[in-house]
Design a protein around this nucleic acid. Sequence first.
DNA 1: CGACATCGATAAAGCGTTTAATCACATCGG
DNA 2: CCGATGTGATTAAACGCTTTATCGATGTCG
Lengths: 380, 380
Amino acid sequence: MDTGPRKRPTQADVGRLAQVSAAVVSAVVNGGGSGSGAVRVSEQTAARVWAAIRQLGYVPNVAARTLAGGRNNIVGVFTYEAVFPTEAKSFYHDFLAGIEEAAEERGCHILLFTGSRGEGRRRRIYKDGVNTLQLADGAVLLGQDEDRDELAELLRDRYPCVFVGRRDIAGGEASYAAADYASAALRMVDLIVGAGHRRIGRIQSDWRHEALIDREAGFVDGCRRHDATIDSVDTLLTPSNDAIPNLLRMLLGQRVTCVVTDDHAAAATVCRAAAELGLRVPEDLSVAALGDYPGDEPGIRPITTVTTPRRAMGVEAVRLLAELLDAPGDPEPHRAVLDCGLRRGETVAAPPPGEEGGRRSAGPEQSHRSRGSFDAGPAL
Amino acid sequence: MDTGPRKRPTQADVGRLAQVSAAVVSAVVNGGGSGSGAVRVSEQTAARVWAAIRQLGYVPNVAARTLAGGRNNIVGVFTYEAVFPTEAKSFYHDFLAGIEEAAEERGCHILLFTGSRGEGRRRRIYKDGVNTLQLADGAVLLGQDEDRDELAELLRDRYPCVFVGRRDIAGGEASYAAADYASAALRMVDLIVGAGHRRIGRIQSDWRHEALIDREAGFVDGCRRHDATIDSVDTLLTPSNDAIPNLLRMLLGQRVTCVVTDDHAAAATVCRAAAELGLRVPEDLSVAALGDYPGDEPGIRPITTVTTPRRAMGVEAVRLLAELLDAPGDPEPHRAVLDCGLRRGETVAAPPPGEEGGRRSAGPEQSHRSRGSFDAGPAL
DNA sequence: CGACATCGATAAAGCGTTTAATCACATCGG
DNA sequence: CCGATGTGATTAAACGCTTTATCGATGTCG
């Protein structure tokens, strides 16, 4: 009965048992390198080494491997908020499911960076200037409210990482697995116009984030393409959902028949505000969202929205990371853009009869109206 | 413009600049050891070293540090099913939240073992006879449908691990952070009897698991203590929830006024079956569960149930693991048993007036009736 | 004055892997 | 028979850090 800390067997131990050197063990474990100067092992000795490995229960030491410049088959996952929030439905859940699936497929484990919380709940990658991610081969970065300076530093460090979602980082080309919000938004406009809407209202968040920028770009592009058909597009900027009821009244003053929001939650707010005003959705007013959010809003009919392929994004991010690791020193970023879905929901229908058609003016420029802040525009 | 991973400054670089040896840099960075043979540094040189560190932007290499130190500061987490299942709500969520919290507090990272799927969806710890968990300092094991042989082997290996939930492993003393289901079940019986019930029905899963065994033990103990008050306890074993409607009808035939199930889902099934029979819960029939499940059953009123302190169990498991690691070679298992909560819910009330009281017989043995399988007993 | 702590710092030995350099040995064409 | 080629292994040098042993000063005490 031994006491003391169970010392894990090393390559030297395995080698001793199999009567070979540690280098051979390393070669066997790593499936024999392909290079010219690679250590070669015969089938026989390899078998002997495997037997010894099994007998001793040898497992490579992560730290030593990392130190020596090798791999440790660990995919880091860094999130800016706690991965397991107490809130009912985790925002990260679907992404993580994809990441887990892809990692498992590659025989990688997942290192969940608990990060050290800095001020507030925000997590930090650099702790006392130390990149805590270094323990993993590379990392998938996840989250909405990230620190851009940290991300820039990460790129400068040349740390192999892949973002989930498009990231436009100053001073570095970031790799990412993104959702194609732009073309999804465009298709949403197609759908709305196809349903007969000619006067569209847009409520846009004033937050500058790639995802939102892309959605807006696609929306504008879509409107432009239907320029000959659409009568007007009224866009209002809002800092939060609290302002939405007011904005909605302004838009209704412009006789819009369909309101397009950035995300699910805003759309749900619009629906509730419409109900307050005695409007039925979608009979009196159509509502569409350019982005979804996991977990349905309770008590609201299914919203017509663009859906984010979260799970697929997680899978793709891990794949890209693997690529990145297999092409060391490659300065080119690896990227993937995945198609979004369009959930038809029940909140977009034909506009009410009276409002249909009735094009008022013909100029090409009339269609894009005031793009003001939420407190601008005419009072109702 | 250099390509390839940027080389970071090392302690040697810092030492060169500050005109000291690497050992001094190490001592400075680590705040100077306390031991007798520790390297001592004067205030002056320490300042010089710090200056050099700042100037070069030195950051310690995590891998080298852990390699030299022996500790990884990595808490492994092994789950038998995928951590992020596609099903709406993850069973693991609350446990993991606790684990994450405790790990973060200790400055540890969390390594989620993806394991390699063997047959089916079951994951395996031993892959080719190799314990893949060894990558971490120790591990927290989580899950319901585990492979007992693997667990036994783990204990034989003396791998430092802590179970979440009681585990009775043949040939080894397992460490665990468990929930005190026994006394919680006992208290639930108190509550039921206190509400006035005298004829209790019990629907019990036939799965042999420590958690269920403990619940039953507590339930039986509770009934025994109220032996003088309770008229009858009818226990039926069931292999699955599908049989519950039939079992319920049998129990009603015995004029029970309260049905006690092992878990939330079974209780919900009872509620639905009762509704089918035109019975109101709790006015006509009370229902209680000895275990909850994350995520409420929709369309059912809150069930009166024992609640598992999942988060606390996660926290405690990590604490026990840390203890285990700090006491190397200690053969004693480390264990913690945490109190469960009692959620009063809305499914237990006083029995219907006609059924109250009315004790039929006085013998001490009458109270525990047929403990048959679900297809035994008299047909209704 | 010699023995002996004490302080401040150095040198060097690991920690467990990877990998480049090297080596022993057989095979083979010329 | 000799050099070229190939195969299957070994040695030894990193990798960056911690830690122990050691060492030269500098006091201090008996």
